[in-house]
Design a protein around this nucleic acid. Structure first.
Length: 507
RNA sequence: GGCGCGUUGGUCAAGGGGUUAAGACGCCUCCCUUUCACGGAGGAAUCACGGGUUCGAAUCCCGUACGUGCUACCA
C-alpha cells in the first residue's frame, strides 16, 4: 500500500470561504489520520480570474486554521512545481497523447461558432445544448475535417483547443467513499475542452495529470464535481493509469441558511455573518471581514466546520484538531448538504473560549484590549480578569465590552436602572460605605463583601437591593461578574472614585 | 429541459427492519443568581408524500414531490 497523499487544490480567485476551508480540513484530517501527506496545489489555469494576493491569502488562512500543507508552492516538495501555471508546458504532451490514441481531437471552432451552434440547437428546441457526439461532426475539428486541412491549420497555428471525445452510450462506474457505487452515462457529458487555446489546461486535464504526477491516492472535492467525474475517470483510463487512480470522495455542499443554493461569497453581507475564514481585501470589491476578525478562535472555527457534515457517531461535539484526526473517517461524512447556522457557529466559539485556559486566551485578549487603546502592564491582573469574564464571551471581541470597565472608568452610568428604587437611605448607605472602605487597610473580596453586608445590616437595608446600584456604579451597567470580585480587582481607590462619581450625578 | 446527488423537529444530527426516534443549537417555562453569563430541570418531530415487501419500516424497493448541483476555452 502506497503512502496516502491528498491534495487541496484551490483557485486563487478570491477569499477562501467556508466550503473551501472544510474541504481543506477533511483532506488534512484524512491525511494525518493515515500518516499521509497533505499537498497544496494552486489551480491558477484561468488567467482571467486570477486575483492578486489570493494565493498568499489561502496560505494565511490554512495557517491560521492550523492545517499547514506538507508540500506546496511555499513549502516545496519533490513533486513541484505546485502552481499549475508553472506546469503549463507539461500538459500539452498529455493532451496530444490522447489525440493520438483517438480519445481526443483538435477543435478549431471560434467562440462565435460555438455560440451559433447553441443558438441553432436552442432554436430547434433541443434540450442538450452541447458540443458532443450528436454534433461534433458538424463542427470544425480534426474529426470532421480532412486530415490535410487539420494539418494545415495546426501548421499555421490556427487557434484551437483539444477536446475529449466522449464515448457514446457507455456507462462509467466508480466508487465514491461517501456515496458508494456510482454509475453515470457518458452521453450526458459534452466533449469537454482539455487544453485551451492559450495552451493552458482546463481543470479536467490538469487534475488528472497532476494527481497522477503527484502520486495522489485520495481525491476529495466538492459535490459540484460529481457530474464531470466520468470525464476524469475516463481520462485515467485513457492514459493507461487506471491502477493509480485515486479513491474519490465528493463532499456535500454547505448551503445558505435561508434555503436555495450553496453558500456563496455574497451571502455573508446579506445575512450578516462572515463566509471567509479571514479578512479578505479584494482588489475590486474592498475589504470583507472573516471569522477571525469577528473574534472566532481557529480551534472553534475548524471544529464547527468539521461537524458540519461529519460526526464521530457519539454525542461529542467539541473536538480538538488532534481528536478530529484520531476520530475522522470519510464514511461518516454525510452525502447531503447542510445549511450553515451562524448561531451554532457562535456556540462552538463560546464553548472553546470557556474551555481555553488563560495562557491560550491572553495574547488574543491583550491584542483586543490594545486595539482599544488599553496597554497592559499588569499581566497577573489581566489573567484574573480573563478568568472572571471568559464565560460571558461568545466571541473573543466580547472581551472588550465585557472587561473594558476594568481599565477605563465608565463614563456612561446606567442610572435609569437604579433610579426607580433609589432613596435617601441608599444615598446615606453609600456615603457611609465610602467612609467604611476608606478606613480599610486590606482590600480583598471577603473583606469588601463582609463590610458591605455589615453596613447594610446596620443601616437596616437589604444588601441585595444595594448590590445592583453598587454594580452599576462600578461597571456602568447591569452586567459583569460578581460585584465584589470587580471591586477587589479595581482596587480601593478606583472603587471609591466610582461610587463618588455616581453619587454626584444622582443628586 | 436533460443528467446527477440528496430528503429524520426551525437548524445541525444519532439511528441502517422490532427504540418511549439520542443529543446539540435556537426558542419557550422553571430553578440557581436580587446583574449579565454559566449551570441545572422541563416543553415541543412518527422520520417529505403515496404505494409496495414484511408478522413488523424512519430503516428495504418503486413512484411522486421538493431541495440541490452540473449542463463554459470557470474552477
Amino acid at each position: 500500500m502506497s503512502k496516502v497523499r491528498v491534495r487541496f487544490a484551490p483557485s486563487p480567485t478570491g477569499g477562501l470561504h467556508l466550503g473551501g476551508v472544510r474541504t481543506a480540513l477533511y483532506n488534512y484530517l484524512f491525511a494525518k489520520k493515515n500518516n499521509g501527506d497533505f499537498v497544496l496545489r494552486i489551480e491558477d489555469t484561468d488567467q482571467t480570474r486570477y486575483v492578486e494576493g489570493a494565493e498568499q491569502y489561502i496560505l494565511d488562512c490554512l495557517n491560521w486554521c492550523g492545517i499547514q500543507p506538507d508540500e506546496g508552492p511555499h513549502t516545496g516538495g519533490e513533486y513541484g512545481p505546485y502552481r499549475q501555471s508553472e506546469r503549463k508546458n507539461i500538459y500539452r504532451e498529455y493532451a496530444e497523447q490522447l489525440v493520438k490514441s483517438g480519445h481526443a481531437y483538435y477543435a478549431f471552432d471560434t467562440p462565435e461558432e460555438i455560440e451559433s451552434l447553441r443558438e441553432t440547437l436552442k432554436a430547434q428546441g433541443k434540450y442538450n445544448v452541447q458540443y458532443d457526439f450528436q454534433n461534433r461532426l458538424n463542427m470544425r475539428n480534426s474529426l470532421s475535417l480532412p486530415p490535410e486541412e487539420t494539418e494545415e491549420l495546426l501548421k499555421i497555428n490556427f487557434p484551437h483547443v483539444i477536446r475529449i471525445k466522449m464515448p457514446r452510450n457507455e456507462y462509467v462506474h466508480f466508487q465514491d467513499m461517501i456515496r458508494g457505487k456510482i454509475e453515470m452515462p457518458t452521453d450526458g457529458v459534452d466533449d469537454k475542452v482539455l487544453l485551451k487555446a492559450d495552451g493552458m489546461p482546463t481543470y479536467h486535464l490538469a487534475v488528472v495529470v497532476d494527481d497522477y504526477l503527484m502520486k495522489i491516492t485520495h481525491a476529495f472535492r466538492g459535490e459540484e464535481w460529481l457530474p464531470s467525474a466520468p470525464v476524469h475517470v475516463l481520462l485515467w483510463k485513457y492514459f493507461g493509469w487506471e491502477k493509480h487512480m485515486p479513491h474519490w470522495a465528493h463532499l456535500p455542499l454547505i448551503l445558505k441558511p435561508d434555503g436555495n443554493g450553496k453558500l456563496s461569497k455574497r451571502d455573508g453581507e446579506r445575512l450578516g455573518f462572515p463566509v471567509f475564514a479571514m479578512e479578505w481585501n479584494d482588489p475590486k470589491n474592498g475589504v470583507v471581514k472573516g471569522f477571525k476578525e469577528l473574534g472566532f478562535m481557529p480551534e472553534a472555527f475548524i471544529n464547527m466546520l468539521a461537524l458540519l457534515g461529519w460526526n464521530d457517531g457519539t454525542e461529542q461535539e467539541i473536538f480538538s484538531l488532534e481528536e478530529m484526526i484520531e476520530k475522522f473517517s470519510m464514511d461518516r461524512v454525510h452525502s447531503h448538504g447542510a445549511k450553515f447556522d451562524f448561531e451554532k457557529a457562535k456556540w462552538f466559539n463560546h464553548e472553546w473560549i470557556k474551555k481555553s485556559d488563560v495562557e491560550r486566551l491572553r495574547p488574543d485578549v491583550k491584542k483586543i484590549l490594545e486595539g482599544n487603546g488599553v496597554s497592559i502592564d499588569d499581566e497577573p491582573k489581566l489573567d484574573k480578569i480573563i478568568e472572571l469574564v471568559k464565560e460571558r464571551c461568545t466571541l473573543l471581541n466580547d472581551f472588550w465590552p465585557q472587561a473594558s470597565f476594568f481599565f477605563i472608568t465608565p463614563t456612561e452610568i446606567d442610572t435609569a436602572s437604579i433610579l426607580p428604587k433609589w432613596n435617601e437611605n441608599k444615598t446615606q448607605f453609600f456615603v457611609e460605605l465610602i467612609r467604611t472602605y476608606s478606613l480599610m487597610n486590606s482590600w480583598n473580596i471577603n473583606d469588601i463583601e463582609h463590610s458591605f453586608k455589615e453596613l447594610a445590616a446596620a443601616s437596616r437595608l437589604k444588601s441585595g437591593e444595594l448590590m445592583l446600584p453598587f454594580r452599576v456604579m462600578l461597571v456602568g451597567g447591569k452586567f459583569g461578574p460578581g460585584v465584589f470580585d470587580i471591586s477587589a480587582l479595581l482596587g480601593k481607590e478606583e472603587t471609591l472614585k466610582r461610587i463618588e462619581h455616581t453619587l454626584s450625578i444622582m443628586k
